[in-house]
Amino acid sequence: MGWLSDSINLFGLIAAIVILILTIYVAGTLVKKMRDSKAEGELTDHQWDGIAEFKNNLPVGWAVSFLVLIIWGFWYLFLGYPLQSYSQIGDYNRQVDAHNKKFEEKWKNLSKDDLINMGQGIFLVQCSECHGINAEGMNGKAQNLTKWGKEEGIIYTVEHGSTGLGYDGGEMPVLGLSQEDAKAVAAYIMADISDVKNTKYPDDVAKGKKVFETAGCTGCHGPDGKGMPGMANFAPDLSKYGTVDFVKRVLEHGKKGHIGQMPSFAYRNFNDTQIQAITDYIESLSSN
Rank of each mutant, 00 (worst) to 15 (best):
D36E: 13
L30D: 07
K38M: 08
W75S: 05
L251S: 01
T23W: 11
C220M: 08
T163R: 09
Y92R: 14
F11I: 05
V185Q: 00
W62G: 00
D204N: 10
L110N: 07
G140I: 11
D181F: 02
T163G: 02
D6K: 08
L43Y: 13
F103H: 13
Y156F: 14
V211N: 00
E53F: 13
I17H: 02
S37L: 10
S194E: 05
G119N: 05
E104L: 03
G170H: 10
Q126S: 11
F74C: 07
E105H: 08
M118A: 09
F54Y: 12
N117T: 11
K207W: 06
G12E: 07
F74Q: 04
G132C: 11
L175G: 02
F11S: 04
K101Q: 11
K106A: 13
N144Y: 03
C127S: 09
L43K: 14
L77A: 07
T23C: 09
P229D: 06
F103A: 05
G50K: 12
N271W: 07
L124D: 13
Y281I: 06
K102P: 01
C220F: 08
F11C: 03
L110A: 15
K210P: 02
A98W: 02
E136V: 10
D49M: 12
L22H: 12
G90D: 08
L22Y: 14
I122L: 15
K200Q: 12
D97L: 10
N271M: 09
G140F: 11
D245T: 09
C127F: 07
Y281F: 15
V247H: 00
G12P: 01
S87T: 04
F11Y: 06
T157P: 02
L67V: 14
P263F: 12
H221F: 04
I275S: 02
T44N: 08
K147F: 07
M118L: 15
S37D: 15
D49N: 14
K248C: 01
A63L: 15
T199H: 01
G119R: 01
L177K: 04
S194A: 08
D91P: 00
F270G: 02
P173I: 05
S194T: 04
Y241D: 00
G161S: 08
C130K: 03
G169E: 02
W48S: 09
H258S: 09
D245Y: 06
F74D: 06
V247N: 03
F265L: 12
K209Q: 14
I21K: 01
G222H: 06
E252S: 15
I259R: 12
V96P: 01
L177G: 04
V185W: 02
K38L: 10
G140A: 11
N100G: 05
N233E: 13
